[in-house]
Simulated scan of single mutants.
Amino acid sequence: MTKETARETDWVPVALSASIVSGTSAGAVINGAEIVVWRDSKGAAHVWEDRCPHRGMRMSFGFVRGDHIACLYHGWAYDTAGQCQHIPAHPDLEVPKTIKIPTYAVEENSGLIWTALAADADVAGVPDLGVVVPVRSLYADCSLEHALAVLGKAELPEAGSAPTPASLEKLTANCWALTSGATRLFVAAQTVGAMKTALHILIDDANGKAAALRAPVARWAEALRGTLETSAPGALMAEVA
């Protein structure tokens, strides 16, 4: 297994679409960089640096009102372009254009929210997975390299039969297909840190039968997390310590 290296031009999945409903926000991390994922009242997703320029408070702790997100600390409100539009302590102030939060490219496709930290990222790098059934986002204390090694030996649940060995196929920089018989999963990977990986798991619903697999795949995913963490390099030493 070759070591996976991240580039700022790579598109990275940061959340299942269903997990970020209109009017909500959530924090996420890409290679140590803290970001906020939020959705405005019109349903558009946004990905920004997770820091208010005023006092450094995480914007993911804030609140969404219409097409603005406001910082929890002092209520500074920012529009969808990241520009501060209102400071409650100075309601008549014309807010300087320099007060702005860095924003990142965002694309939403096939049940996933994707972002790229580089402004020149090619949108062709966002995979179109077709019709899918989202299962869950799984966070494991292991490297992406280790997660891929385990997935390469995985067995998948089959409807009405015992689990069977699966094959792992890379689709894009951060997305893989895991296939066993009639079962096909998509695993979109988000490197949180050197020893922290998020796997966003979806079922290919091209045959219209994925809904019946959602529960067994969810159980499989939970077991997978245990396998990833207990078999990760250094896991035994951590238990002894």
Score class of each variant (00 low, 15 high):
residue 73 Y to A: 05
residue 49 E to Q: 15
residue 82 G to K: 12
residue 95 V to S: 09
residue 70 A to V: 05
residue 115 T to Q: 01
residue 56 G to F: 05
residue 103 T to L: 06
residue 56 G to R: 07
residue 117 L to A: 03
residue 79 D to K: 10
residue 67 D to V: 00
residue 90 H to S: 10
residue 68 H to L: 10
residue 114 W to M: 00
residue 54 H to N: 10
residue 61 F to G: 09
residue 65 R to T: 02
residue 73 Y to G: 03
residue 77 A to M: 06
residue 59 M to H: 14
residue 65 R to N: 08
residue 117 L to P: 03
residue 99 I to Q: 09
residue 95 V to W: 14
residue 88 P to Q: 15
residue 51 R to S: 08
residue 57 M to P: 09
residue 66 G to Q: 11
residue 76 W to C: 00
residue 92 D to P: 05
residue 118 A to K: 03
residue 81 A to P: 08
residue 121 A to S: 01
residue 56 G to V: 02
residue 63 F to M: 15
residue 124 A to P: 04
residue 64 V to N: 06
residue 109 N to Y: 04
residue 84 C to W: 13
residue 105 A to I: 01
residue 106 V to M: 06
residue 103 T to Y: 10
residue 59 M to T: 08
residue 62 G to L: 10
residue 102 P to T: 01
residue 52 C to E: 04
residue 71 C to D: 03
residue 99 I to F: 13
residue 89 A to V: 05
residue 93 L to K: 07
residue 50 D to R: 15
residue 106 V to L: 07
residue 46 H to T: 00
residue 87 I to N: 13
residue 81 A to D: 10
residue 119 A to S: 14
residue 62 G to S: 11
residue 87 I to G: 13
residue 50 D to M: 07
residue 69 I to N: 02
residue 49 E to H: 12
residue 105 A to G: 05
residue 105 A to Q: 00
residue 74 H to M: 10
residue 46 H to W: 02
residue 105 A to H: 00
residue 116 A to M: 02
residue 51 R to E: 14
residue 107 E to W: 01
residue 55 R to I: 06
residue 101 I to C: 03
residue 70 A to T: 05
residue 123 V to M: 07
residue 81 A to G: 03
residue 86 H to T: 04
